[in-house]
Design a protein around this nucleic acid. Structure first.
Length: 300
DNA sequence: AGAAAATCCTGCCGGC
DNA sequence: TGCCGGCAGGATTTTC
């Protein structure tokens, strides 16, 4: 799925119900969704039953729900994961892999349904460690800021919407990479939150070709690209993310509306809204890159 | 160490 | 109608 705007939409939806919620029961329909919990599904269940979630935190595309100072349930949606909040009698959702039954702080019974067609996503329980800079581990406005972060997320860089994200340092690192700029934008160890949609959209706005080597782009231009990408993510969060099929929905099963704002992604064959050229889709790194060959030229 | 490719999966869609 | 290739919002591991 799901890039930062979609994951943030899910995070906010979960936080509204799950802060202070206690886990009652867990159903595992497909243990492959717990493959990142190395001690096995049984251990996952035993550890989580009876625990109370203290917050719902996000960094980049990772989510976690701390339930003590030392542990959290970590979720990643992969390409097709969803976390749906349902009432217990709500009809079954297709491809439901794990269901966490909980009682909210208000005494309501809810089900958190982890739905995932391709099973690239996962849930796991992870230890929390302190951030290296002692700043907050991630975004969680409903709960007191904490400098803790799950070990499996610690190597992911701060995302573009993080107040402690440092554009200058990141632009400088980018300018030393020989890879194409799109590959660099997607490197979550450099900056997190951007995926295929928002990479293509940001590059279109910046008039950069996806294969332009990052080390051939001026640092000032890289800073501009970072700022553009940040604005794209912010606007997409306001629209509830991008939905164009059944694979991304918010916690209520509703679509986001940023797809109406797309200029390049998924627009192959259509006119470039800027220059009137024809948007192309090119096979790229096992997926696709969408761009305008007329106003996003590879510079030598 | 950095870069690129391979891998983990299921389902839908269009073309023949 | 049915089969097959192509395609899908990602991260990690492997290989060079």
């Amino acid at each position: 799925m799901p890039e930062l705007p979609e994951v943030e939409t899910v995070r906010a939806g979960l936080a509204a119900k799950l802060v202070g919620a206690r886990v009652i029961k867990i159903d595992i329909a497909d243990p492959r969704s717990l493959k990142r919990h190395l001690l096995g599904p049984r251990h996952f269940v035993d550890e989580l039953i009876g625990q109370t979630f203290e917050a719902v935190v996000r960094r980049g595309k990772f989510l976690w729900l701390p339930f003590s100072d030392s542990r959290a349930m970590v979720g990643h949606l992969g390409m097709s994961g969803q976390l749906l909040l349902r009432t217990p009698n709500y009809p079954e959702d297709r491809q439901t892999r794990v269901v966490i039954h909980a009682e909210t702080a208000q005494g309501e019974l809810v089900e958190v349904r982890f739905v995932d067609q391709r099973i690239f996503g996962s849930l796991a329980i992870e230890d929390l460690v302190e951030t290296v800079d002692n700043q907050p581990g991630g975004f969680s406005p409903e709960a007191p800021a904490s400098n803790l972060i799950p070990v499996v997320v610690a190597h992911i860089s701060r995302d573009l919407l993080d107040p402690d994200f440092d554009p200058k340092t990141v632009a400088s690192k980018m300018s030393k990479r020989a890879s194409g700029i799109k590959r660099v934008l997607l490197d979550q160890k450099l900056l997190s939150g951007i995926g295929n949609i928002y990479a293509d959209e940001s590059l279109w706005l910046a008039k950069l070709h996806y294969d332009q080597p990052a080390n051939t782009i001026r640092v000032s231009k890289l800073l501009e690209l970072i700022e553009i990408a940040k604005q794209v993510l912010e606007r997409a969060v306001l629209q509830g993310g991008t939905s164009f099929d059944e694979q991304y929905k918010n916690v209520n099963g509703d679509s986001g509306y940023f797809s109406q704002s797309l200029n390049a992604y998924g627009q192959a064959g259509k006119a470039c809204p800027r220059c009137g050229g024809q948007i192309e889709r090119k096979a790229w790194a096992n997926r696709g890159s969408h761009f305008c060959p007329r106003c996003q030229r590879l510079k030598t």
